[in-house]
Design a protein around this nucleic acid. Structure first.
Lengths: 142, 142
DNA sequence: ATTTTATTGAGAATGAATCTCAAATGCATA
DNA sequence: TATGCATTTGAGATTCATTCTCAATAAAAT
């Protein structure tokens, strides 16, 4: 957590952005959690613990966290954008069980390498991978 | 196109749904195109042919086409749900440009093979792949 | 401490997707 | 071919996540 905070500070500084109280509160809330989250989750979490931060500010700050590389946008869920940590978390691909909703995380680098090659062929510069599959986990196949 | 229409008819019949004019117009519009599309694209396309169908009906009909297996939901683009054909189309992965929204399709089987191996390790049975990356196409990098 | 400039909060605005309901249509039956 | 009825449609209203606006506030530069 120390490190995330440092990285965040550096990022803000490098962009000439101010290190404001709401920005700190939001980033702390983000790293209290180790699950996927959406803006509303953050809002409620912050409301419970700290002083309030407006939804508008959360909506404005989350993209900064994404840009800083600390989190990334994940698959949408229930019509909401959801996010997941990237810092300190291996990139991974998701297997999502259509029956029980379980998310299984699996290897990544081999796949990413392959994708990189394909992207190069198209002259495409990747900023974020989106890799996974839906199906049935071992408990939900009968 | 003949076949798609047949499959669609059969699907509707099997669900005791009526083969109405709007449903036919929409499915024809869907299969005129060979690109990814969203509801608005369909609406405009249909309007051009002077066969108006309301947006509400398109929103109601697209899920039927998905359920029938003729199309599937693809990655979101510009805050809109987008769809792609599945019937008669190879699986592929998407590179989506964050700037201009262009979707580049690229190889698939090598990646899919790799993913299959990973899925096997987890004892996971894949029913649908979800493979791609966001970034910038060659025209949108400066 | 004062000035400058970015940031915030609150609510309004936007826009995709969904819902409502009276009118229209498909289709089974006579 | 006409009748009856359940389904479907269109148009607009509604919802809800996200973005925008702008006056008030806070950070940091001087």
């Amino acid at each position: 957590m120390k490190q995330e905070k440092e990285l965040y500070r550096d990022f803000l500084r490098s962009k000439n952005l101010k290190l404001t109280k709401p920005r700190l509160i939001i980033m702390e809330a983000v790293f209290e959690n180790h699950e996927h989250f959406n803006v509303d989750d953050l809002y409620e979490q912050i409301k419970k613990k700290h002083k309030n931060v407006s939804r508008a500010t959360i909506y404005r700050t989350v993209p900064l966290l994404v840009e800083s590389g600390l989190i990334k946008q994940s698959l949408r869920c229930e019509s909401k954008d959801i996010y997941e940590h990237t810092y300190g978390h291996e990139n991974h691909l998701h297997f999502i069980c259509e029956n029980c909703g379980k998310i299984i995380e699996s290897g990544f680098s081999e796949v990413a390498n392959l994708i990189d090659t394909l992207a190069e062929k198209e002259n495409f510069k990747i900023s974020e991978y989106n890799l996974g599959a839906r199906g049935f986990c071992k408990d939900c196949q009968k």
